[in-house]
């Protein structure tokens, strides 16, 4: 579903993303982990076709994001960091805009808006403008927009960042419901979410992939048996030392 091959991006002399390569199959939920500034968002923006890679390619459902961007983007639902939305619209207006910009027919649009409104549980705020919504609802509207065309691949950048525990649970439940039908990549720096949501965890640091494990396998990497958090600390500290 999603094939990432040698994805590389430099900003000036700094290599923000360095030859990242992995594949995600249908039914997999991959946690994309790393400290702030590790290159998570840059990678996701390249996968979404928002930023051009310097080297490498991404295949979304077989379509190259470099040579066939629009077909690739048609296969992808993307939630950018911070879930940017048009604040002056109501959620249904916003969802209709995204669906129509994606080329959905009017006849299909109404059903799709109803479906994602139900999936994301945002029915109760349908008549409010997005400006008046809480962070949790806004994030769910962003998720609903990413799902409007029922894409086979989902890229979610920090979908639970800044949410309270109840909101986090709601977003996690939504992702769990979708998981069997899609290939999903979720970036996060909240490690507690990894076992709760993901079937696989990839750790990046300073632009490079330093681990690709199951959550349990990742926790087992900790030298002192301290679990996921210790493993994460060990891995990312090491590479800081190696770079220094």
């Amino acid at each position: 579903m999603l094939d990432i091959k040698g994805l590389t991006r430099r900003f000036g002399s700094k290599t923000a993303v360095d030859k990242i390569t992995f594949s995600v199959a249908k039914g997999e939920v991959v946690g994309f982990l790393g400290p702030n500034g590790a290159g998570k968002s840059t990678s996701m923006r390249m996968i979404a076709g928002v930023l051009e890679p310097d080297e490498g390619d991404v295949l979304l459902d077989g379509h190259s994001i470099v040579s066939n961007r629009r077909d690739a983007q048609a296969s992808l639902g993307y939630l950018p960091e911070g879930a940017p939305l048009y604040l002056d619209m109501t959620p249904p207006e916003f969802l209709r805009f995204v669906g129509s910009a994606r080329g959905m027919e009017k006849s299909a649009l109404g059903g799709a808006v109803d479906r994602v409104t139900a999936d994301a549980r945002i029915h109760s705020v349908s008549s409010q403008t997005i400006r008046s919504l809480s962070k949790g609802y806004r994030r769910r509207v962003g998720l609903a927009a990413a799902l409007i065309h029922d894409p086979p691949v989902l890229i979610l950048d920090e979908p639970t960042d800044g949410l309270d525990p109840n909101q986090k649970r709601a977003v996690r439940a939504l992702i769990a419901r979708m998981a069997p039908q899609k290939a999903i990549v979720i970036s996060t720096h909240t490690l507690e979410e990894v076992p709760a949501m993901c079937s696989r965890a990839i750790v990046v640091d300073q632009g490079r992939m330093i681990a690709d494990e199951t959550p349990e396998g990742l926790a087992a990497l900790a030298t002192d048996g301290g679990g996921l958090e210790a493993a994460f600390r060990d891995l990312t500290d090491q590479s800081v030392e190696a770079a220094a």
């Binding site: 923006r45 979404a48 076709g49 928002v50 961007r69 629009r70 077909d71 690739a72 983007q73 048609a74 992808l76 993307y78 950018p80 960091e81 911070g82 940017p84 939305l85 048009y86 995204v98 910009a101 994606r102 080329g103 927009a145």
Partner: peptide, 10 residues
């Protein structure tokens, strides 16, 4: 930040 959204549309 909605330009990010626009650029991700096909």
């Amino acid at each position: 930040g909605t330009d990010e959204l626009l650029l991700s549309l096909p």
